[in-house]
């Protein structure tokens, strides 16, 4: 498959996988392997000071030669908190990457797009490569691009919902107008959702719960990998035009039956 360039990074896999909600780190790593991903997201949280010494660190499980680590600002509700989180991630040695999320409210986990645009502008100026999580809104996507986002990440459906691509027309519009990579992030529940997104022409898909909370997460990770490749190949191939009525695939001429 042709490679994908995002900022100064090149990926052969177009699947981006989150590191949350697995049974344990061993299962997480198995899922990463099965998914074929080359880029995994992580979150930043306070160190649990009472148990720090016996607790295993995520970084002990993720081979940084193989995987790009994309820190998120999940759980941030203000521009300032998202910017603090991005700067802490950079201080942790994760480089200039950030998956910027500024969440509007806890019930929907939908993004506060105005605040995300503002944070994108500041962080891009500070040299961050901002991958901006946003709504499936072509206007917001364009504003993020104009504010310096390296990639724009419209949601398929609310985070963790597994509802799939709720507004494929908007996603297609976003893709059609974008000059930066578009990655569908959130709401992807199963393999067909990944294929659906990729067939719309998005550059990649980011998912977490769809794998981590599947009946067999490792098997689903493998399914997601193939779904992503199938969708990309179908997009590049170009689908047949849809028609209102049937058209026979076998010739009408030469029939020897009634």
């Amino acid at each position: 498959m042709e490679s994908l360039r995002i900022g100064n990074r090149v990926f052969r896999s177009r699947l981006f996988v989150g590191s949350g909600k697995y049974r344990d780190y061993e299962q997480m790593v198995e899922c990463f392997d099965a998914s074929g991903t080359e880029c995994v997201t992580v979150a930043l949280r306070r160190v649990d000071l009472k148990h720090e010494r016996e607790r295993r660190n995520l970084l002990d499980y993720v081979d940084r030669e193989r995987f790009t680590i994309l820190p998120n600002t999940a759980g941030c509700y203000t521009t300032e908190d998202a910017m603090r989180t991005a700067r802490l991630a950079r201080e942790l040695g994760l480089g200039e990457l950030v998956k910027l999320e500024v969440i509007a409210d806890e019930e929907t986990l939908l993004p506060n797009t105005a605040a995300t645009i503002e944070a994108t502008r500041v962080l891009a100026r500070e040299g961050f490569s901002v991958w901006a999580y946003t709504n499936d809104d072509p206007v917001a996507a364009r504003a993020l691009e104009e504010s310096g986002a390296t990639a724009v990440m419209p949601l398929g459906a609310p985070i963790g919902s597994g509802l799939g691509i709720l507004n494929p027309r908007n996603i297609a519009t976003i893709v059609g107008r974008a000059k930066v990579p578009i990655i569908v992030d959130a709401g992807v529940g199963t393999a067909s959702d990944v294929t659906c997104a990729m067939e719309l022409g998005v550059d990649g898909v980011l998912l977490n719960t769809g794998i981590a909370k599947a009946g067999d997460p490792v098997a689903m990770a493998r399914a997601m990998r193939h779904a992503c490749e199938a969708g990309r190949l179908a997009f590049l191939a170009g689908r047949m035009p849809k028609r209102e009525m049937a058209a026979p695939s076998s010739p009408k001429e030469g029939r020897f039956t009634g």
């Binding site: 989150g18 590191s19 949350g20 909600k21 697995y22 780190y25 997480m28 997201t41 992580v42 979150a43 930043l44 949280r45 306070r46 160190v47 000071l49 660190n57 995520l58 970084l59 680590i69 820190p71 998120n72 999940a74 802490l88 201080e91 942790l92 985070i159 963790g160 959130a186 980011l206 998912l207 977490n208 719960t209």
Partner: peptide, 24 residues
Amino acid sequence: RATYDTTPVAAGDAIEVVSLVGGG
């Protein structure tokens, strides 16, 4: 990081120590 050993702690400071955890 380079200034940990030269940055004094002052009364009333709010200090956050964070690390990476799983997340999407």
